[in-house]
């Protein structure tokens, strides 16, 4: 008997190991539509905007001049810088508040609630997604306004005697509504990590002498870190680009960088719009890179 190695494997159709380029391409076609969408609706527009960011505009006409002026102008204008920083602070605060609320919720859900009720409660978290974002934000206008539900409640309870105007058309309103809007993202990301966690490990850690808090920090947190990172990414990054909520509940005082970009666009200042967009994009990419570093570093530290 001669060895069959290298020869065709009996019983398999010839095409299966033909390895021809045509066959390989044939298997790739399901990617086609997605690749086309990505190319025509993302990369090409992105490239166009990138090019615009180096052009100038005169009498609403784009002129291909190749200049860094648009970027410089952004960094030299106080209000732009301030809005940008405020956006970052807002994103940090909302991420912190969202995760701060979502973690106890997800922890309790995963650890103490029966599987059936877990589903019910998760559904309750997801249901708001079935209504439009716009409707939900309008609803918040009705809640936070001077004659809104919140003021009514506070007055009924007797905490205040006059309606407050501090909730709507400023940063407070934006913070409240964004926290509400992004809570489900944080909750779902954290829950999906916590759900896989075996909580007897915490009992074991305490058995070995760890205080409950230390058990949490040394045993639980390192294992659910991916959930935290996902939660941060899903909350922080979209907020940097938020436009609708600041427009509707932020008013003129609650403007974020997204509103600025829309204003550039409406004013026909396409190069300024493009430059601001790329500054945001660069910032987010920078963050992701830093975050990756931080993550790996942290993994090394806990192993030491």
């Amino acid at each position: 008997m001669t060895a069959q190695a290298g020869g065709p494997v009996p019983g398999l159709p010839a095409e299966a190991h033909a390895g021809s380029r045509g066959a390989a391409l044939g298997r790739l076609w399901p990617f086609g539509p997605a690749a086309a969408v990505l190319l025509f609706l993302f990369f090409i527009p992105l490239a166009i905007v990138f090019v615009y960011s180096f052009w100038t505009v005169q009498n609403l006409q784009l002129i291909p001049t190749w200049t860094l002026q648009n970027y410089l102008k952004f960094f030299q204008t106080d209000t732009y810088i301030r809005t940008f920083l405020k956006t970052i602070i807002m994103a940090v605060l909302v991420t912190a508040a969202g995760i701060g609320m979502a973690f106890p919720f997800a922890y309790f859900l995963a650890r103490y609630v029966s599987t059936r009720w877990q589903r019910v409660l998760l559904l309750a978290v997801i249901i708001p997604f079935w209504s439009s974002y716009l409707v939900r934000v309008y609803a918040w206008q009705a809640i936070l306004g001077e004659k809104g539900a919140l003021n009514w409640l506070l007055m009924q309870v007797g905490l205040i005697s006059e309606p407050l105007t501090i909730f709507l058309y400023n940063d407070v309103g934006v913070f409240i509504v964004l926290t509400y809007v992004y809570f489900p993202f944080a909750a779902l990301s954290l829950y999906s990590s916590l759900e896989k966690f075996d909580f007897t490990q915490l009992t074991a850690a305490q058995d070995l002498g760890a205080t409950p808090l230390r058990a949490m920090r040394r045993i639980l947190l390192p294992q659910v870190r991916p959930g935290f990172i996902t939660a941060m990414i899903f909350v922080f990054i979209p907020i940097i680009g938020e436009y609708l909520t600041p427009t509707l509940v932020g008013g003129t005082k609650g403007v974020l960088i997204g509103n600025l970009i829309v204003n550039f666009y409406r004013g026909g200042a396409f190069p300024a719009m493009a430059a601001a967009s790329f500054i945001i994009a660069a910032f987010i990419i920078l963050l992701l890179v830093l975050f990756r570093r931080y993550l790996q570093l942290d993994d090394v530290v806990t192993k030491l």
């Binding site: 074991a204 070995l208 294992q223």
Partner: peptide, 26 residues
């Protein structure tokens, strides 16, 4: 008092040596 749990409850993110060292560190 220390316990050997039925499902062991080992810490999956730590090596065998780190698992054993955990109680000492605490």
């Amino acid at each position: 008092v220390n316990t050997v749990f039925q499902n062991y409850a080992l810490f999956p993110h730590m090596s065998v040596a780190r698992n054993v060292a955990f109680g000492l560190e605490m």
